[in-house]
């Protein structure tokens, strides 16, 4: 696997709401994803995390600053970078298999080959029984699995996840953490995941970045020292709890300072 580095340099972004207000979404964000690492981005809702992810996927151009993929500026979406959306973005008229195979179909891979790869991935995620089902027949957890499977099928070098487990119940969510880490262990893509769940961020990643609210700005970086594979007893580990407190403190401090300003 090649060594793809995605770097964000001094990215600032503003957007105008429908009632004409100019919102500063991001301010001077700089971060670098080194190959085969798992990074999480946490922050309160409305801190521009999703905007940053869309910029990193090449969907929108930042107002200033730039995104570099292996040193080259990123101008449009790339097949190497895969984005898993927060909301259900499966095509309702396609079966699970056809949905997972969509990125390969768009890349011009023939039917037999893309369905074979989709079936392998569905098998890995325990979804092979539902390969012929339509998305409306699935539960929320299964829909997110399919979403992630679709993001993985092109074997991207960089996987961007936008609150993939945000809408799920705690049990399903924890099960999906394990599954995600398992699959990541096999592919070793570079992962950046946005979440607002601190425990989720620490459990999954090697590095947690804390983002401030409006404008979004990275205020703190916390290294997570645990090795993979990780188990759930980690959640009660003193170091884990200490890291959790550090991240929470950073978020609270930011909220305090912003409320004092406002």
């Amino acid at each position: 696997m090649s060594q793809f580095v995605l770097a964000v340099e001094n990215v600032s972004h503003t957007y105008t709401t429908t009632d004409g207000q100019v919102v500063k979404a991001l301010h001077e964000v700089t971060l670098c994803l080194s190959p085969k690492t798992f990074t999480c981005l946490v922050g309160a809702s409305g801190s521009g995390k999703t905007t940053l992810l869309r910029i990193m996927a090449g969907l929108i151009r930042p107002k200033s600053g730039q995104v570099l993929l292996n040193g080259k500026p990123l101008r449009q979406p790339q097949r190497r970078i895969s984005l898993v959306f927060q909301r259900d973005t499966l095509l309702p008229w396609r079966t699970v298999r056809q949905n997972v195979a969509l990125p390969l179909q768009l890349a011009g891979v023939d039917r037999k080959k893309r369905f074979m790869q989709a079936d392998q991935l569905l098998d890995l995620m325990g979804l092979s029984e539902f390969a012929n089902a339509f998305p409306t027949e699935l539960s929320g957890g299964m829909i997110q699995r399919v979403n992630i499977a679709r993001g993985l099928i092109t074997q991207p070098d960089i996987l961007l996840l936008d609150e993939p487990f945000g809408a799920l119940d705690a049990l399903t969510r924890e099960q999906l953490w394990r599954e995600l880490l398992l699959i990541w262990g096999r592919t070793h893509a570079t992962v950046l995941m946005v979440t607002h769940d601190i425990r989720e961020a620490i459990f999954l990643s090697q590095r947690v970045m804390v983002m401030s609210t409006r404008p979004g700005h990275i205020v703190k970086e916390v290294e997570v020292p645990f090795d993979y594979p990780r188990h759930f007893d980690l959640l009660t580990d003193p170091i884990f709890i200490q890291k959790e407190a550090q991240v929470r403190e950073a978020i609270l401090a930011d909220r305090l300072s912003s409320s004092r300003l406002g």
Binding site: A57, G58, L59, P77, F85, R87, T89, L91, L106
Partner: peptide
């Protein structure tokens, strides 16, 4: 519009967007 963006993120050309979305 979300599905349009999803197609764009998956590097779909205009003909593919028409035919598949």
């Amino acid at each position: 519009p979300q599905l349009r963006e999803m197609m764009r993120a998956n590097v779909a050309n205009p003909l593919q967007v028409f035919w598949h979305l």
